[in-house]
Every structure is written in structure tokens, then in C-alpha cells.
Design a protein around this nucleic acid. Sequence first.
RNA 1: GGCGCGUUGGUGUAAUUGGUUAACACGCCGCCCUCUCAAGGCGGAGAGUACGGGUUCGAUCCCCGUACGCGCUACCA
Length: 478
Amino acid sequence: MNKEVRVRFAPSPTGYLHLGSLRTALFNYLFAKHNKGKFILRIEDTDQSRKVEGAVENLINILNEMGLNYDEGPVVGGEFGPYSQSERLEIYKKYSDELLANGDAYYAFETAEELDEMRKVQQMQGKQTMYDRRARVLTENEVKEKLSSGIPYVIRLKVPLDTEIKFKDIIRGNVRIETNLVDDQVLLKSDGYPTYHLANVIDDHLMEITHIIRGEEWLTSVPKHIILYNAFGWEVPQMAHVPLILNPDKSKLSKRQGDVATEDYLKKGYLKEALLNFMTLLGWNPGEGEEKEIFSKNELVELFTIEKVNSAGAVFNVDKLNWMNGEYIKNYDIDKLTELIIPFLNSSGIDTSDIAKTKRVVFAIRNYISKLDEAAEQAKTYYYEVSLSPEQSELVNSETSKQVFESMIAKTDLMLEITIDNFKPMLSEVQKETGIKGKNLFMPVRLALTGEEHGPELGLIAYVLGKDEVLCRLRKFV
RNA sequence: GGCGCGUUGGUGUAAUUGGUUAACACGCCGCCCUCUCAAGGCGGAGAGUACGGGUUCGAUCCCCGUACGCGCUACCA
């Protein structure tokens, strides 16, 4: 008896995927997969003035890249298509005609200027700004006359007055709004395109959507939608309005205060697994005292329930994202991580053609970075010529340092290869032999090998450089 | 202005559907490890649950009010 769960992610193509949209898509995806249902992508491109070239392709790419593959939608198709609203215009026309015929909608002929004027007056009077429903009183003949004379028109929703709309949101519980406060929303614009409200209701019904999971900014327009469902005699899907993602100052996450496009984060070297993990935990938690925070996508699918989504907005905390991304980097498969890091190294001019060495480098730097774009900075040590400041070179060229290097060279020469495990014991022997220890022993070696006073443990450095390179760098100072 | 939604340390979240010294993670501070910087290990500071009233033997949890924040208030989504 349970219907198959069908949910949709219905973005308007803006040219990039906003983090808030990413999370909405993510929640829809997780909910669908958890319930063994379908995740549908629908493009809400009904605003011709906001058209962006290539935006749809970009959206699909990024969604796929993030692993949020949809079951039905543009490109992949499905039995409820087309999945772009701009290709469904006749459908909206048909249903708006039906509303007109049943008296649930009406024609209106005001110009944009007239509406502006109306609002201005309302504002001055301190009244609520909304359409004053003036066209409701037009007679059939007046309407006919205006239509035949070619005056541009819109079709507006005829909101039933003096009552209230009650509904239950899965996340927010019961909500009620008086219909007198609900605007006679434009449903069909004068260019023949539908507004969000009309298209959304019709498509959700036609595409047999069972659960609407979308951002909180839509909560107050739910009554308009319910009025439409009622007018058509359709069942209202279940609804869940997820909280917004916020800037540190608690306003809605915006460009002004940092990057908001998913693409930007990928470019900076955040791993998609980490991003998905982090975004899910923004406003959701498995609860019941679960203290784990690192979850694979499969685990999230298994655990995710929409009821556990928080109702309050969540501040986007980059510090925590960085930490989590670092956790993923530390534990990632080394071959895959190397593959991901190579482009970042190349773009800094590092030659990665020696794959074996590159892999050793990645192994060495993974504990030192929290984003992939920090890799080049950390990796430089292993690739560039050593250059020292006057003080540093004085230390390296001191008598004791020379002793250390000579002893090391002799011992290293005898080694088959340097490993992380055998380098340190070798240094211990050098210490015994020369009587030089502590900082006087290690710092010259560090400087000779890397040219820097800070860095990973020496064993790691020697291992990455390899025997030949280590010898080569040491010999420069004896 | 109107309407709606929200409010647990700085941030993200917990707290067996009223009974806990209010827990965990990030961040911050300190210690250990150590040649250095991270990582790691250990420890610490930081909220009495926005505020004020109720209900109750007992409220983070239920009810009311206030404050504050956010959202919506377009022929944008």
C-alpha cells in the first residue's frame, strides 16, 4: 500500500550550485535512497530574464561529480518528462485554463507600473503590500474586450477569503496562515511562462512526487500551493522545509561573506566525500547519542531520516570543514589521493612525472594539509634546490655539521635504500660516533636536506628523497 | 510595517518522548611526544539550555508572553 517514494531536486539554473542547494539536493538524495525511492532532477527555468548559458549542463555536471546521480531528469530521461519546465509550457496553459474555467483563477491586466504604484501607496499607508485583487470584479464582457484588444494579461490565483490554511510540515510541525494574508499570486505571466507556484504544483503532481524537501524560504508560500492542489482536487505531497545555511553573522549564506558555489570548494581542494559528509551534518544528526562524525555516503543513506533534520538555521563553519577534510585526506586511499593531488602540484610547476616519488611525497604531506590546494606548498621541499639564509648556512658549514654529514654519507652509502624505519637508527649511530646530538645533530641535517627549519620528521623526508638525492644534498656541504 | 519560522558554550550538534555533575566534535589554551612544524595522546577554560512567567514533587524537554535573529511579503526562484 505504500507508494514508492519519489522526491525531486528542482533548482533554477543560475550557473553554479549554491551550497544551500547542494544540501537540499543531498537531503533529497539521501531520503530517496534511504527509502529505496527515486531522486528526480527538474529544471525550473521559467524566468526568461534570468537565463544563463550553459547553466543546466554545469548543474548536471556538478551534481554528477558530487555523486548525487538522479534517476530521472534531463539527459537521462524518464517517463514523466520533459524535465525542464521551459519545455512544458502547453501543460501549464492547459491547467491554468482549467483553473480559469472553474473560477479558481482570473485574468488581470495591470501593468508593472500600476502595480508599483499600488504597492507604493500601500506602503505609505502602512498597509501590507499585496495585490488588491481589483481584477476580481471585472465582468466577463470587460475581460473579453480586453483580451480581444490584445492587452497583455496575467492569470492570478483566486485565493478563497476569510478562512485559513493549515498544514503539517515534517520538520516544523503544524503551521497555519490566514488566507486573507495570502496574495492572489500570478500563476501565468504575460510572456506565457508560469511562475514557480503554478509550475511547481503541476509538475510535482504529474511527476508523482510524494515528498517535497526544499529550503525554508518556501514555507510561507505553501498556502498558495495548497490552494492550488485543492482547486485541482489533487493530493498534497508531504512537505519538509529544511533550515537555511547561514553566514557567521547568521544571515542567509551569501557571496559577500565567502564562497558559496560548490565548484569553488572543489577547486580549493575539498574532497567531495568530506563536503557531502559535512553538509549533511549541517542541520542533521543521527541522534541517540551517536558520537561519530565521519560517515561514508552509504552510511548516511542508511541512517538518514528527514524527521531528524533540525529546524534552526546552521552557520557554515569553514574551520570544521577544514578539519573534516583533513581527516579524509589522512585516511584516503594513497593512489587515489595522489591522482587528486597531481593537478594541484602541476599547476604550481612541480613535475610529477616520477610517479613513485610523487606518491611518496603525497604520503609525506597528507598529515600536513587540510585542503588539496595546500599540497604544493608542502611538497616544494621535496623538489626544489636548497637555498639557505646566511645564519642557516653558517650552521650547516660549521665544523660539527661537517662531521655529521661525513659520518652520514659513509653510512648511507652502505644502505641499500632509505626507509622510514632505518634512517633514524642510522642517525643514532652517527650520534654515537661523533658525540653530536640533539638540535646540533638534527637541525643541520634538516637544513641540508630541505633548506627549512620546519617540516616533517627527518625519516619521512629522507625516505621521500631517496638514497641518491639524500647523498647528493649532503655532499654539497662537505 | 504585516505574516511565518527559529533560539542548548564562539560554531555544528547530543541529551533513552520531564528526573544527567547538560554530552560530543570543531575552534581556543596548556602539557606530553620531539631537531622543528603538523599529526597524535592527555588535560583545561567555556553554556545552567535567549529572557520572564506558568503547569509539575521536578523542566533543555509541555503552555503563554517578551526580546532577538532569520525568512517571505515580485509577471524571481
